[in-house]
Computed example of a mutant assay.
Amino acid sequence: MPVTMVNGTSDEVQRYDGYIRSNGRLLSVPETTEYWRRIDGCTGENATPLPRLDPHDLTRASLVQWSGCRPDTGVQLYRIENGGHFWPHLVGSGNNNPVDGPFRGMQQRF
């Protein structure tokens, strides 16, 4: 199964490094991508920094892609440094929700 993930490293809801609570455990993003890498039979990994479009944006994005996967599968992760629990969106796209603070993290502008 092909898998694409978008995760912020400062997400306070779905923590990048996972967590353990009384009601269960949330796997970390690295553990989750490793699970899918094994399921899809991927053997290689490549990380590419994405262009920074706004010099005032405090986030940085990179695309991590796994290669050598079985046919019709694949794993990729958009890692948003300083990104919180907020879906990346275009500035001026009509979504005027506040984007800073510990809950949401900073915004990546695409």
Rank of each mutant, 00 (worst) to 15 (best):
P51K: 04
S22Q: 13
F86N: 15
G68S: 05
F103L: 15
L50E: 11
R21C: 09
R21N: 12
R25H: 12
Q107D: 10
F110H: 02
G101N: 11
Y78F: 14
L90N: 09
C42N: 04
Y78G: 01
G24L: 02
P55N: 04
N97A: 09
G68V: 03
T32M: 11
P30V: 06
Q76P: 11
Q65C: 01
V64C: 06
H89R: 02
D54S: 08
N95E: 08
R104P: 11
V91G: 03
D40F: 03
S22R: 11
L77D: 08
Y35G: 02
V29P: 06
P2D: 14
L63W: 06
D57T: 12
G74L: 01
L63K: 10
M5Q: 11
R104T: 15
G8T: 05
N95Y: 10
P102E: 15
D57F: 00
T73F: 03
T9F: 00
Q107T: 06
P49D: 14
Q107W: 13
N46D: 13
I39T: 15
R79H: 10
V29W: 01
C69Y: 05
N7R: 10
Q76G: 07
A47G: 07
G44D: 14
Q76T: 01
D72L: 06
E81Y: 02
C42T: 08
H56W: 09
D54G: 00
Q108V: 06
H89W: 00
T9Y: 03
G68Y: 14
P88Y: 12
L50T: 11
R15C: 08
P49G: 05
E45F: 00
G24N: 02
G101R: 04
N46G: 08
M1V: 12
G83C: 07
R38N: 13
Q107A: 13
P71N: 09
T33S: 01
E81G: 00
V6M: 10
Y78H: 11
G84I: 07
G44K: 03
I20C: 04
A61V: 08
N46Q: 13
V13F: 04
F110C: 06
V6C: 00
P88L: 13
N96Q: 08
R37V: 14
L77C: 03
S67I: 02
E31F: 03
I80K: 00
I20M: 09
E45P: 00
S28V: 10
N97C: 04
G74M: 01
N7F: 11
Y35K: 01
T4H: 10
Q76E: 15
N82V: 07
E12V: 01
T48V: 05
L58S: 13
V64K: 07
G101I: 05
N96W: 09
P88T: 04
G68W: 15
W66M: 02
R60Y: 03
P102F: 08
G83Q: 09
Y35A: 05
R25S: 15
V13T: 02
G44H: 12
R60T: 09
D57N: 04
F86Y: 10
V13H: 00
A47K: 12
R109L: 14
P55W: 07
G68D: 11
T33H: 01
G84W: 01
L77Y: 10
N46V: 14
S67M: 05
R52G: 13
A61T: 14
T32K: 04
